[in-house]
Amino acid sequence: MNERRSLPILRPASDPGALALGKNEGKSNLPQEYLTFGLAGETYAMPLGVIVEVLRWSPVTSIPTAPADVLGVLRVRTQMVTVLDLRRRLHLAESAPGAAHRILLIRQEGEIVGLLVDEVFRICRLASAPMETTSPLRTFLGDAVLGVARFVDRRKVTHEAVDMRQIATTEPLVLILSPQGLLRPARPASQG
């Protein structure tokens, strides 16, 4: 049953689109590979390393008294997985899950958690590039955001850096999410 729901993640050997992100300034303390996915018509990305599996949408069991962004629990093989509605978590408009919806299973602090997304796009590589400011988003979403990136045409990328002004702004912005920040509940310090 569960095997049929899982979808292998394919890594294209040479992806024409590379993801440009600031802030890492040549240092590689940020992960290199990202999975991009769609939420409410926008594009988001998450480090590939934390993603364990991608499942097709299947109904979850909702839990009364649970926080609002918890969609419910789902049994994945022997584990009880908490599924978060990423739209609700990021304060986006809600929608009813359908055939294109996927659940990303991510591993965080020893626990597997599911994130409901509208659709999954592809795997991208992160290029080193100048930073785009993320401060307004951080005030709104807090630690959930790692940064903002944009798809670039590889042919225009020089060795060292990309001049952002030269890149046509026709490519969509990509918001890179921090799995850690997403799962850390936004609550007062008294909860430790």
């Binding site: 926080p67 908490t82 978060l84």
Partner: peptide, 14 residues
């Protein structure tokens, strides 16, 4: 029964 993950530790009803 299987317990919930840590992310639901504050749910005490179940």
């Amino acid at each position: 029964a299987k317990p919930f993950g840590k992310s639901l530790s504050e749910v005490r009803a179940f």
